[in-house]
Design a binder for these strands. Structure first.
Length: 208
DNA sequence: CTCTGGATTAGCT
DNA sequence: GCTAATCCAGAGC
């Protein structure tokens, strides 16, 4: 299958804060198909979101806010519409969209996107020419989109990084599973993905 | 194809 | 001190 970037226009409507204030599972589902845009140095990177995971509240054992606020997770307590970026495994970043009302810690992890714009730059950042290996994982997506801790706490209503609606007539069905790479909270099926999309990450359920 | 271990450090206990 | 919302290379089948 040959990859053809789909049409993309910056005229598409930027998602407003009301979208992010909604229940996290709804946001996680509805982010599928939407387009995440990153601007820096006058360059544009964009991709269609094809895989997400929800992390919800202090009682979700897989959520970073499990057990209460700490210096790392405090961004999750902001009202919906902020970026929560964290560093893990000594070398990787992961990007989340904060959801729900202020004081309730919840976020949606962007696990994979389908590259649309700025593909050559993504290949450079990822040091690979294989388009299917650019953004099919949460840390790969961050590397391809030049996302690091400096974006932690950034508003998604600004211009550095934001998400726009898709007005294409793209039809897809949504798949659902347990979350990937966690050892607690595996009973919850809070991962969502576009069924059949070749840019969804490889599934490896952590066995424990 | 599948499976295993190493990389490398911030954040918590 | 231990582990992590990951990724990659290498080994074996």
């Amino acid at each position: 299958m040959k990859f053809k970037p789909k049409k993309f226009s910056l005229d598409h409507k930027k998602l407003d804060q009301n979208f992010y204030l909604q229940p996290t599972l709804k946001v996680a589902r509805e982010l599928l198909g939407k387009i995440i845009v990153r601007q820096f140095n006058g360059q544009i990177l964009a991709g269609r979101i094809v895989e997400t995971e929800a992390y919800i509240g202090e009682s979700d054992p897989a959520c970073h806010a499990y057990g209460g606020m700490t210096p790392r997770n405090k961004i999750m307590y902001l009202p919906g519409g902020y970026a929560y970026v964290y560093f893990t495994y000594g070398m990787h970043y992961c990007f989340n969209v904060v959801t729900e009302k202020e004081g309730f810690p919840a976020a949606v992890l962007i696990r994979a996107v389908e590259p649309i714009e700025g593909i050559e730059l993504m290949k450079k950042f990822r040091n690979t020419n294989n388009i299917y290996n650019l953004t099919n994982g949460p840390a790969k997506f961050c590397q391809a989109f030049k996302i690091d801790k400096s974006l932690n706490g950034t508003s998604l209503l600004g211009d550095e990084i934001f998400i726009v609606d898709s007005d294409d007539d793209i039809k897809f069905t949504i798949g659902r599973s347990q979350r990937i790479g966690i050892s607690a909270g595996t009973d919850k099926k809070w991962r969502f993905f576009i069924r059949g999309n070749p840019f969804v990450s490889k599934v490896k359920i952590k066995s424990k």
